[in-house]
Design a protein around this nucleic acid. Sequence first.
RNA 1: AGAGAAGUGGCAGAGUGGUCGAAUGCGACGGAUUCGAAAUCCGUUAUGCCCGCAAGGGUAUCGGGGGUUCGAAUCCCUCCUUCUCUGCCA
Length: 431
Amino acid sequence: MLQLSLLREQPDFVIAGLTRKFVAEPAAAVAAVLAFDQRRRTTQTALDDNLARANQLAREIGELMKSAAREGRAAEAEALKAETAALKQQAQTLKTELETVETALHDALVKLPNLPHASVPTGRTAQENETVREGGTKPNLPPTAQPHWDLIKQYDIIDFELGNKITGAGFPVYKGQGARLQRALINFFLDQARDAGYTEMQPPVVVNAASAYATGQLPDKEGQMYHDAQDNLYLIPTAEVPITNLYRDEIIAPDRLPIRNAGYTPCFRREAGSWGADVRGLNRLHQFDKVEIVQIAAPQDSYRLLEEMVAHVEGLLQQLELPYRVLRLCSGDMSFASALTYDLEVWSAAQGRWLEVSSVSNFETFQANRLKLRTKGEGGKTHLLHTLNGSALALPRIVAALLENNQEEGRIRLPEVLHSYCGFGAISRQQ
RNA sequence: AGAGAAGUGGCAGAGUGGUCGAAUGCGACGGAUUCGAAAUCCGUUAUGCCCGCAAGGGUAUCGGGGGUUCGAAUCCCUCCUUCUCUGCCA
């Protein structure tokens, strides 16, 4: 959620940013918010004055009651009581109005996306994303090379049919060397995060509505989460949700910043309506594994830390010997909450396409505003912090690329760095 | 899951209808003292919102929500959480 103070103080700046995000009628949207804000303030001033008067009367009545017995002033007290009755009625009306206008203000404000950072290229679609750099070398595969959905059957390491039987489509079962590869990747990613200064966290994988709301999954993406209606809990779509919410409603001492956390969790996504030709095999799943890195930073440090995070993820891809590229997303392709996002994609050789394996974003104060995540600055004033997160990394597409890019006759070679984690150096037919 | 008890400021802990955003202690911060430190002394030490250039003032918040009352941390209802005992269980 954008900060109301920014709309008040720099409406033109906000409108310019919203325009770049292709928000319809940005000037009208900002004007509507400001109008609600104005109404809210006059209403609250009226209510506060009313309550101040009522409080004062209550004090006076208290005094009169004390002296009533010996001075016979009960009648005066009764008169004042009559006045408070009128005030109360008025206060009730004002309270209702305040609630209504606050809701309207809030509803208008949460509809506005975050503003793109100055370095974000303006553009509507993924075609206009900017390639920042590429790394690694694309392999030259023979024409007989197979896509990963065939390889996993051939080596019997990931079984979609079994998952379909016990759960449903998009919930694969990892078997034997496939399961061990998953575990190896998770451990490798977590160890790398720890070495980079992140504290490992193991959060719950279901969260309450307040958490889902604070990081922005609710209300916008309600239909994309699995929901347990009985207890009103949501399965997390990413570890970002619980790990960021650890700091909901907190005032963090400046000397604790930046806070760096990492966590492995399974992630659950309904992916309603997003199935198509490009989502075969591991390209899109309802449940997948991911290690997420999250930082909470002072505003002046956040963009430097964002670059660090991208470098960390790049380092992982380099160690996995995967060809990759780093994209700076254009304004129209960025998520609702992000101010600047880098996507990292790996080359999936048999499919002949880039697969997004990580998205690293700076949300500036957009999430922190809903989280009420603050710090105390000069003069004891509180102000919002910046939140950042990134995948480091999501497993399925990494596995897809590893399988496709490294396929050889009768085996799939694995990068050196995984050998000790897996306990084997190549996937072969024996389990 | 059943029975009982409890939820107050960074922590501990008082407060059972008015002068309570809240005693006291600890911690933290600033100052005095000191060559420096300890000890001691003085002071400061929750958050949101509204009015105001500011100084300052107002308002709300004592687990959440609702109610009674002129007035609620205090009484009532409800939900949540924690603790103790019993039961069940990886």
